[in-house]
């Protein structure tokens, strides 16, 4: 994909350079034309009014050439503008990509380092599909968390919840972000007391971030922080909220969230990322 784009840009650059050379060369060309045109006028003394029209028509070719050069310059400038804009979006894409990679990397690291202890069961199961490894301890914790869920609400099928969550999460993996938002919103509505609702809110935030809607993302992370204060995702939610607030330009709230990660979860990987952000 990048190769195609860069090849495209390269070809434009080549085109632009060659056109540029041509445009520069064409200026002396028109000067040359003048040198030819002037003596031809001098010969025609004394000047008759109709000779004016005659000489003008012989210069039409020159005029066309001049127009042509001007059009070329105009088009060149427009092309240059497009190259600049393409470069800019490419650069931004690269940065986004890197950001996402780091984010994913961080999550993998955090998963492999921390044997899941409490509520984060099904996401672990789902994530395991992504990263191709499975931790037996997470299976155990699955059971515990689901049991807790059952206690909390009687009319509620943990299997359905788990399946729905998995489905929503699969959409995220497939980058069907719009669909995943719909699924996650439906999920939090269907299982308001579910064991995974905090995770769902967190992932809503992640998806909003990917889509560039930092303000909605901040709301989602904020929801996790305030409604699920004991959730395992809190350090991550705080860090992500900080990033989202920075993107909106709310420096105060961004710093508040990032500082909380640093002071309350100094050992977390989120804290490491937060430190980079603060600096």
């Amino acid at each position: 994909m990048f190769q195609t784009i860069s090849r495209f840009i390269l070809s434009i650059v080549v085109l632009v350079t060659s056109l540029h050379v041509f445009a520069n060369n064409s200026v002396p060309v028109s000067d040359l034309a003048n040198d030819i045109a002037i003596p031809s006028l001098d010969i025609q003394k004394p000047i008759q009014p109709n000779s004016v029209a005659l000489s003008a028509s012989t210069n039409n070719a020159n005029a066309q050439m001049s127009d042509f050069v001007e059009l070329l310059q105009l088009e060149l400038r427009q092309l240059r503008g497009q190259v600049e804009e393409l470069n800019y979006s490419l650069e931004r894409l690269k940065q986004d990509q890197k950001q996402r990679y780091l984010d994913l990397d961080r999550r993998i690291v955090s998963l492999s380092n921390q044997p899941a202890t409490a509520t984060e069961a099904p996401p672990t199961a789902v994530t395991s599909q992504v990263v191709q490894f499975k931790d037996t301890s997470s299976e155990v914790s699955d059971a515990t968390s689901l049991e807790q869920g059952v206690v909390a609400q009687e009319v509620y099928d943990p299997e359905i919840e788990k399946a729905d969550y998995k489905a929503a999460f699969a959409l995220i993996r497939e980058r069907q972000y719009d669909a995943s938002i719909v699924a996650l919103l439906a999920f939090v509505e269907d299982f308001p007391q579910g064991a995974l609702v905090g995770n769902a809110h967190y992932w809503l935030g992640e998806v909003y971030m990917v889509q560039g809607d930092a303000s909605l993302a901040a709301q989602s992370f904020e929801h996790v922080i305030t409604q699920f204060p004991k959730h395992r995702k809190i350090p991550d939610a705080l860090y992500k909220a900080g990033v989202a607030y920075q993107n909106i330009g709310d420096v105060g709230k961004a710093n508040e969230a990032l500082q909380r990660v640093l002071s309350e979860f100094p050992e977390s990987s989120a804290a490491r990322l937060a430190r980079e952000r603060v600096n």
Partner: peptide
């Protein structure tokens, strides 16, 4: 300059 260039192309010094 555009007008100037036009005139020059038409033979004006």
């Amino acid at each position: 300059n555009a007008v100037s260039r036009y005139l020059v192309v038409q033979g004006v010094s």
